[in-house]
Design a protein around this nucleic acid. Structure first.
Lengths: 216, 216
DNA sequence: CAGCTAAACGGACTGCGGTCCACTTTCATT
DNA sequence: AATGAAAGTGGACCGCAGTCCGTTTAGCTG
């Protein structure tokens, strides 16, 4: 419960009515002391290594501490809990897709018309999450902080696009609905347990966007 | 990992294409030995008591075992893990709402036209989940088994109704989308953390159903 | 009713997440 | 350079989920 705000894009909220999201305290991280910063970096590196070699689900806090040659308390002080560590690991990966839809090339990025961006969003996220499912699932398991900064960024983005395409109704709720469709656990369940081809999920997304996004 | 199938309504699946859901092994519970059955019952009673008095989140497996005067191993043998116990506790509660929409009075039950049932479903579930949020949240925390029998029952019901109202597109995926909107954690977040009035969620549901359910 | 086997039982044991607190280090101030 | 306080550190410690295995018991079979 001590972890400084995650390195999520600042996102000055250009939309979202009552959504002043207290979750991202907005100020930049309260600078760490030199030794702390060094340790934080080492911990993340080591944790990423361990996750790569034995799967994120099998990374224990103790192992991370040991491999980084610090005390266990240090890991907890820095990341709060296991969920915090996983979220921090995810940050890096999450930034890739954030960059893609906030400032990348069309059809995802800002140079495409809103409807196209909206349609492209789903397939991109689905593939991204699937590619990094190990970490996403592990982070999910520690449900502390669902509705974390990443979620908020995606939500803000979706509601913005929805407004731009003239979506009717309660745009914020529609955003949550769309996010629900992209939920990692659901996607993984459909792809893996139910064996759906990813194209079917894509089609489902396009349908959803068409129905929820168009002015009717 | 030993828990016998939950006491969910058999639900001879009248719809659901590739949904032969292996999750509910369909056969009735492989009868327990007399002592085991007795203990199972005691354990559930005791667990419900403890949950009522100290909150489901604070019920430990050991405490349940102790209060029921059995060994810890017995609790685990019976319910597999904490998630299994919580799910079993929820069963009882879940059956109430299942009964309501499978065989209760209109507008939820079978004597109302499908579109009305569909529209009534959301508000009913939202209120139900909210009323029992303690258990739903606790059960959720043990994410082992999301997409459990209860989920499947709701899904089957929703897809059936969707077909009856002539919903276009991929009805199974639409069912998952609707379920996503009713996800306990999301609902709780919106109601509690975001302070939305429940009527707003109701309205969102009606909108969603209208948009996804009507033939366009 | 005796005998047998699969099921159930109990509780010691392990491993991990998370807390606590006495001690050390950084770094701003003067 | 000295110094004081805030920040950081490490590791013993705690509680709980989940496992393991030697013992007990239900309940069939003859």
């Amino acid at each position: 419960m001590t972890e400084p705000p995650r390195a999520v894009f600042p996102v000055r909220d250009a939309s979202a009515g009552p959504a002043d999201l207290t979750l991202t305290p907005a100020g930049e991280p309260p600078r760490l002391r030199a030794d702390a910063a060094r340790n934080r970096k080492r911990l993340l590196e080591v944790a990423a290594e361990l996750a790569a070699e034995r799967g994120a689900a099998n990374v224990t806090m103790e192992a991370v501490a040991a491999a980084a040659e610090v005390g266990k308390g240090t890991v907890f002080r820095r990341f709060g809990d296991r969920g915090g560590l996983m979220l921090s690991l995810l940050d890096h990966i999450e930034q890739q897709i954030q960059a893609a839809f906030l400032s990348g090339p069309p059809p995802l990025g800002p140079d495409a018309p809103p409807l196209e961006r909206l349609r492209a969003f789903g397939p991109a996220v689905i593939r991204h999450e699937h590619a990094h499912r190990d970490l996403y699932m592990a982070a999910h398991r520690e449900q502390s902080r669902r509705y974390n900064p990443s979620y908020q960024v995606r939500l803000t983005h979706l509601t913005l696009l929805l407004r731009q395409v003239g979506a009717p109704g309660d745009v914020e709720l529609t955003g949550h609905t769309l996010q629900g469709y992209l939920d990692t656990v659901l996607v993984e369940y459909l792809l893996t347990s139910r064996g759906m081809p990813v194209e079917r999920l894509d089609a489902g997304w396009h349908d959803l966007v068409d129905r929820l996004g168009t002015p009717r």
